[in-house]
């Protein structure tokens, strides 16, 4: 292993990692609350809202994220909605992942015993209090495993931003590989991805353990 070469390309890879992490963190921060709102909307008794949200979830889950990225950046300007590259990538990721999260939350909401909600109603709690203090904590425990899969997928999916010309980790590795005609950059890219997913897996396991205090 040529340590000198590694030290030369590592700064570029770490710069790419910053982009990967930016997309990852911002998508999570924005898509989780949006997904939660959508999942509540999917249960809405106002049928047109539920129907529109179902269509949204179907569209997002039924088409590739790569296509959505291209559509947001190159397609939306046709209707005068113009995004910068990073904003376009973030927007596409957020609306895509919010749809997946909404489906996970929807399943989780269905898993919360109706009796728990009735018990809250009988204590005089209003709908928001029931959601905040009864449904949501129980929902979180139920969705952690499924969310964990999506979160790890998100780290890897973030490499799709290359299609918009953004310099993420994989793109930095690809550039170095093409320039230096060696697979070492991609090996390093793989190691960085593995480290990221290892940290996330550890975090998710800790979260699962935290919520295992009750059955």
């Amino acid at each position: 292993m040529n340590w000198h070469y590694i030290s030369e390309i590592l700064p570029a890879l770490l710069d790419g990692t910053k982009m990967t992490l930016s997309i990852f963190v911002l998508t999570l921060v924005l898509a989780i609350p949006l997904g939660l709102l959508v999942s509540v909307g999917l249960h809405s008794e106002f049928k047109p809202l539920a129907a529109v949200l179902k269509l949204y979830v179907w569209l997002m889950r039924g088409t590739p994220l790569l296509l959505q990225l291209i559509f947001v950046f190159y397609g939306l300007p046709i209707v005068h909605i113009v995004f910068q590259r990073f904003s376009a990538a973030l927007f596409a990721f957020v609306i895509n992942y919010a749809a997946y999260f909404a489906e996970i939350f929807r399943g989780g909401l269905q898993g919360v015993d109706r009796g728990q909600i009735e018990a809250g109603q009988m204590l005089g709690l209003n709908s928001f209090q029931i959601f905040r203090h009864i449904t949501l904590p129980q929902l979180v425990k139920q969705v952690i495993p499924a969310m964990g899969n999506e979160v790890i997928n998100l780290v890897k999916d973030s490499s799709l931003v290359y299609v918009l010309g953004l310099g993420d980790l994989l793109r930095a590795g690809n550039i170095a590989m093409a320039r230096d005609v060696t697979l070492v950059p991609l090996l390093l890219v793989a190691i960085i991805y593995l480290l990221l997913t290892a940290v996330l897996t550890w975090g998710l396991r800790s979260l699962e353990r935290h919520y295992s205090y009750y059955e």
Partner: peptide
């Protein structure tokens, strides 16, 4: 009425208790 309208009027102990598990 459920919710807070009749709060404090009627309490209930359900057959399956329905304690908040968390």
């Amino acid at each position: 009425q459920i919710d807070n309208i009749n709060q404090g009027v009627i309490g209930v102990v359900f057959q399956d208790f329905r304690l908040f598990s968390h």
